[in-house]
Design a binder for these strands. Structure first.
Length: 218
DNA sequence: AAGACCTCCAACCGCGGAACG
DNA sequence: ACGTTCCGCGGTTGGAGGTCT
């Protein structure tokens, strides 16, 4: 199409954010191509959706992952593999992108640690561990493939077997309890749920949140 | 102090599937 | 039934900021 050559890319400006928020409020968070057009933003619908889903959506937490969330990510990843959106749905306020990023850096660290360990104690590299060589870093990161096949369809028994083998730390119940407790605590302390967020929110957008009637969505 | 290296995260890309006409 | 459009997902990239040497 003719428009493509003038489409903006790269980081979003404050003005664009405000504009997008306004039009999402107006038309809802669907029909992104339409939204992109009517808003006058020189962005693709895809880009608008991404910005909304990963940053502007008021339901998002923007702070660091809590230890409870980290544990939950580990737990769910051991179940489902790289099904980020699925995992994200179980962790309120977190996006698939965020979890994916977290996992990537987290597992890279682990892979490095493992590599160090294995180079210190070269115990005839017990074949199945896919961690020892540089090339295998991806394999380590990209876990879950096999498990995923097994788990597809929510087979509880095999899940538990797998978890027990690999990294069983906390039961899901414990994790959920932890999260609930934490949230309760936060509420009591009157801490904002959206912990540390960009200064951008402090002014222009802040007033938008207040003025917007989010309940009108859906 | 400054350059190299690392970490984190926002954003993009390509693809597959669902929805629609 | 089929082609087109839209949406959502997973993988990847690039840059900013922090840390190390």
């Amino acid at each position: 199409m003719v428009q493509e050559e003038i489409m903006r890319r790269g980081p979003w400006t404050e003005e664009e954010d405000v504009q997008l928020l306004f039009y999402v409020k107006l038309f809802g968070d669907r029909r992104w191509d339409f939204l992109a057009k009517v808003s006058g933003l020189k962005r693709t619908g895809k880009s608008c959706r991404l910005r909304w889903v990963n940053y502007l959506n008021p339901d998002l937490k923007h702070g660091k992952m809590t230890p409870q969330e980290e544990r939950l990510v580990l737990e769910l990843h051991s179940k489902w593999g790289n099904r980020w959106s699925r995992i994200a749905r179980k962790i309120p306020g977190r996006t698939d992108n965020e979890i994916k990023n977290y996992w990537r850096t987290h597992m890279r660290k682990k892979a490095q640690e493992q590599r160090k360990k294995s180079s210190i104690s070269p115990s005839s590299s017990s074949s199945s561990s896919s961690i020892t060589h540089e090339k295998n870093e991806r394999n380590f990161y990209d876990t879950g493939g096999l498990k995923l096949l097994q788990v597809e369809g929510e087979k509880k028994s095999s899940d538990q077997e797998q978890d027990g083998k690999s990294m069983k730390v906390y039961s899901m119940d414990e994790i959920w309890k932890d999260i609930e407790l934490l949230e309760e605590k936060e509420e009591k302390m009157n801490k904002p749920i959206m912990g540390s967020i960009s200064p951008l929110w402090d002014y222009s957008l802040d007033s938008l949140w207040k003025d917007f009637d989010w309940s009108s969505f859906r």
